[in-house]
């Protein structure tokens, strides 16, 4: 299972070609330069427990993902098998530095770690303050576009920025990952879906109720 995950994560990186054109030229520039409205959608962990399913080209892996904000304001993401050991344990310091606390040997490949890091950074929205950004608009949506070394993290809201409709990780031209988040009243989203566009790799997180797991 892990071998397949590694092979397909590796193949995903092939599609991140650099290019001179930006994929946002069809959108209008806005006078708005603040992403405060977007920050309203940033998940407010505490601690969240998610039943997690990973599908990679017909293969299936499941477990429990725990996302926790630590007392020192660092963020921890731990994925464990339901019946056995921890697959990986990642953390981000308060200033956004990424640390691999532990990872199962079979998953311990640079490309796997890099892909998972970027996927989680997209949905946790913990890199908004890093790098250049711009805000553009279509007829119905507002695009918050954050430049990254090999592409962009993009968050699409409705025009009035009251609903977060889609999160995208893009290469220089094409989307690499599309993700959605369903908010919940406690600030800890009830679900996330992360779907890679260049190969079949999907992560589905569904929140577990705390009272049944403690």
């Amino acid at each position: 299972m892990q071998k397949f995950l590694i092979i397909f994560l590796l193949s995903g990186s092939i599609f991140a070609f650099p290019s001179c054109r930006t994929p946002f030229q069809h959108l209008s520039a806005t006078a708005d330069s603040s992403f405060t409205a977007l920050e309203e959608f940033r998940p407010a962990f505490g601690v969240g427990f998610y039943k997690t399913e990973v599908d990679v080209t017909g293969r299936h892996l499941s477990g429990i993902l725990v996302i926790k904000k630590m007392p020192d304001s660092s963020m921890r993401v731990v994925f464990t098998n339901e019946a056995g050991p921890v697959y990986f344990d990642f953390s981000w310091t308060a200033v956004g530095e990424f640390i691999v606390e532990s990872i199962m040997a079979q998953l311990n490949k640079k490309s796997v770690i890099k892909t998972l890091k970027k996927d989680f950074e997209l949905i946790l929205m913990n890199r908004l303050v890093q790098g250049k950004y711009e805000i553009r608009e279509s007829e119905t949506q507002r695009w918050f576009i954050f430049s990254r070394p090999k592409g962009y993290d993009v968050y699409l809201t409705n025009k009035s920025s009251t609903t977060l409709e889609l999160m995208k990780r893009m290469g220089k031209r094409k989307p690499v990952v599309k993700a959605t988040m369903v908010p919940d009243v406690d600030g800890i989203p009830s679900s996330f879906t992360i779907e890679h566009q260049q190969f079949q790799f999907k992560i589905q997180l569904n929140k577990m109720k705390r009272d049944v797991i403690e």
Binding site: F49, T80, E82, D89, V212, I213
Partner: peptide, 13 residues
Amino acid sequence: EKTLSLLSEKINS
């Protein structure tokens, strides 16, 4: 009972 070192909570099933 699953105890993760970073958590004060346990995951019970």
